[in-house]
């Protein structure tokens, strides 16, 4: 029996001192992390065949063991597990979502967008799907009708922001360095550097990645997933989290459709398997075919964000005038008192 967790996935290796912690029956030890050994006893060495030192139990729980002894070899065999015996252990209830901090900042971003009537859209896709070209073409087409600003996310370079600025639109570049996605704090920081007009459109181009950006709410109104016909129609099934998080899927590079084996109906069908009811648009940035529907979708979003803001402003004005009306009454009643 494993002395650390009590599971039975342990085999003696012969000499009585060494044990091999067997997970899933794998024979190859990819990680020879040392387990903690009771003070004053010979070191138990166990090899974990799974790279992450964790394993599933029959009751559906998964756990790992600490690796303290591996770092402390040669200095002391006393492990945290042993020290706890002489310390009082307490359990602290937390019940908090791992992404709570990001989501709280995203909520602040969303509130700020609402207060200013800004329609924020988060463009997500794999690298090379044509996000930046779509964004530049959108900026050129809309800049005279709708105030707009752009946040560009890439691991490095400011090439994309420069492309957008060359089209005559304000843009700020976020470089995530080794990061694989934008998070809500990065967007909040970018908003301080960018002039975003009231009742405008904010386009956020996420890092080209069909996995990681799905997990992070930026405070946007919608995630828009872009899938080009050169990528394969089964992407929504291969990367379901991203298409599930999106509210609109754009099938891009439609001009190349005659040259590739891409089943448009299947792609949309797959996207609707992971996100029932997802809206779909077919377009080509290069030929502008289908582009009008996309522009109309954005303009409708801006109009709705503006209308909601006006409702709030009107409601606030109504409340302020109501409060002002009460002021003389209160002054009068104070004087009487």
């Amino acid at each position: 029996m494993c002395v650390t967790c009590g599971c039975s996935n342990v085999e003696a290796t012969g000499n009585g001192l060494q044990e091999e912690h067997v997970v899933g029956g794998g024979a190859e030890a990819r990680d020879n992390a040392l387990h903690a050994a009771p003070a004053g006893t010979p070191v138990y060495r166990r090899a974990h065949p799974d790279a992450n030192n964790g394993h599933w139990h029959a009751d559906g729980t998964w756990h790992s063991h600490g690796h303290d002894a591996a770092r402390k070899v040669g200095t002391s065999f006393a492990s945290p597990a042993d020290r706890t015996m002489s310390e009082r252990l307490r359990t602290l209830c937390i019940e908090r979502d791992i992404l709570a901090k990001n989501d709280a900042i995203a909520s602040l971003n969303r509130r700020w967008f609402a207060e200013h009537g800004i329609f924020a859209v988060n463009l997500v896709s794999s690298p090379g799907s044509g996000k930046t070209s779509l964004l530049v073409a959108t900026a050129k087409a809309l800049k005279h009708d709708v105030p707009l600003a752009v946040i560009e996310g890439d691991q490095q370079t400011s090439l994309d922001a420069e492309r957008v600025r060359a089209a005559g639109v304000d843009a700020v570049q976020i470089n995530t360095a080794k990061g694989c996605h934008l998070d809500a704090q990065m967007v909040a920081d970018a908003l301080r550097k960018l002039r975003v007009a009231e009742e405008s459109l904010l386009l956020i181009e996420n890092v080209g990645n069909l996995v990681c950006p799905a997990a992070f709410d930026l405070g946007e109104a919608h995630k828009v997933a872009i899938l080009s016909v050169t990528e394969g129609d089964d992407k929504p099934l291969k990367y379901p989290d991203m298409f599930h998080a999106a509210d609109l899927v754009i099938i891009n590079k439609m001009d190349l459709l005659p040259h590739v084996d891409f089943d448009v109906t299947a792609a949309i069908d797959y996207a609707r398997r992971v996100r029932p009811g997802i809206e779909a648009m077919l377009l080509s940035t290069r030929t502008s075919k289908g582009f009008d529907a996309w522009l109309a979708w954005l303009q409708r979003g801006v109009a709705e964000a503006s209308a909601r803001r006006m409702q709030n402003v009107d409601a606030l004005r109504h409340r302020v005038s109501g409060l002002e009306a009460q002021v003389p009454e209160r002054t009068a009643s104070t004087k009487q008192a």
Partner: peptide, 20 residues
């Protein structure tokens, strides 16, 4: 059918911790 709305299984939460 694929007309499914996920109601459980998206959790990523810290339930509690044991401290000394």
């Amino acid at each position: 059918s694929y007309q499914l709305t996920v109601v459980r299984g998206e959790e990523m939460a810290v339930k509690d911790i044991e401290v000394a």
